[in-house]
Computed example of a mutant assay.
Amino acid sequence: MKKESALKQQLQHTIDNKTKPLGALGRLEEIALQIGLIQQTTKPVIRQPHIVVFAGDHGIAQTGLVNAYPQEVTAQMVLNFAHGGAAINVFCRQNQLTLKVVDAGVNFDFTSHSTEVLNAKIGYGTKNYLNEPAMTIAEAEQAIEKGRSIVRQLTVDGCNCIGFGEMGIGNTSSATLIMSAITGLPVVEFTGRGAGLNDDQLQKKIDTLQEVFKKHTLNELSQQPIDLLSRVGGFEIAMMAGAYLEAVQLQLIVLVDGFIATAAMLIANEIFRATKQPSPVPDWTTLTDHCIFAHTSHEAGHEKLLRHLGVTPLLHLSMRLGEGTGAALAMPMIQAAVNFLNEMASFESAGVSTQNAER
Rank of each mutant, 00 (worst) to 15 (best):
K3I: 05
S5L: 14
A6M: 12
Q9R: 14
Q10T: 07
H13I: 05
D16H: 11
N17G: 09
N17R: 03
T19W: 11
K20T: 01
G26T: 09
L28S: 01
I31T: 12
Q39C: 06
Q40E: 08
P44V: 05
I46W: 08
R47E: 13
A55K: 08
A55N: 08
G59I: 02
A61E: 07
T63L: 14
G64E: 15
Y69G: 05
Y69K: 15
A75W: 10
Q76Y: 07
Q76E: 14
V78A: 12
L79W: 12
L79H: 14
N80R: 13
N80P: 15
F81W: 12
A82S: 11
A82V: 11
A82P: 11
H83E: 15
A86C: 08
Q94M: 13
L97H: 05
T98C: 10
N107D: 13
N107L: 06
N107T: 00
F108Q: 05
F110E: 08
S112M: 08
G123I: 05
Y129R: 06
N131V: 07
A134N: 01
I144C: 00
K146Y: 10
K146P: 07
R148V: 09
S149C: 10
R152G: 05
N160L: 09
F164V: 02
G165P: 00
S173W: 02
S174P: 00
E189P: 08
E189I: 10
G194T: 01
Q201T: 08
L202K: 12
T208S: 01
Q210Y: 00
K214Q: 13
L221F: 03
P225F: 00
L228W: 09
S230Y: 08
R231L: 07
R231D: 03
V232F: 07
G234M: 01
G234D: 01
M240D: 04
G242K: 03
A243K: 03
L245P: 11
E246P: 06
L255T: 03
L255P: 01
V256T: 04
F259R: 01
M265V: 05
L266T: 00
A268H: 05
A268P: 06
A268Y: 02
E270A: 07
I271Q: 02
A274I: 06
Q277Y: 09
P278Q: 11
S279E: 01
S279K: 10
V281D: 03
P282E: 00
D289P: 06
F293S: 00
K304F: 14
L305K: 08
L306Y: 05
L306T: 06
R307Q: 15
V311C: 04
T312H: 13
P313S: 00
H316T: 13
H316S: 14
R320L: 06
G324Q: 00
G324R: 07
G326P: 04
G326K: 01
A328N: 09
A330D: 02
M331I: 10
M333I: 15
I334G: 03
L341Q: 06
N342F: 12
N342S: 14
M344D: 03
S346Q: 07
E348T: 09
A357S: 13
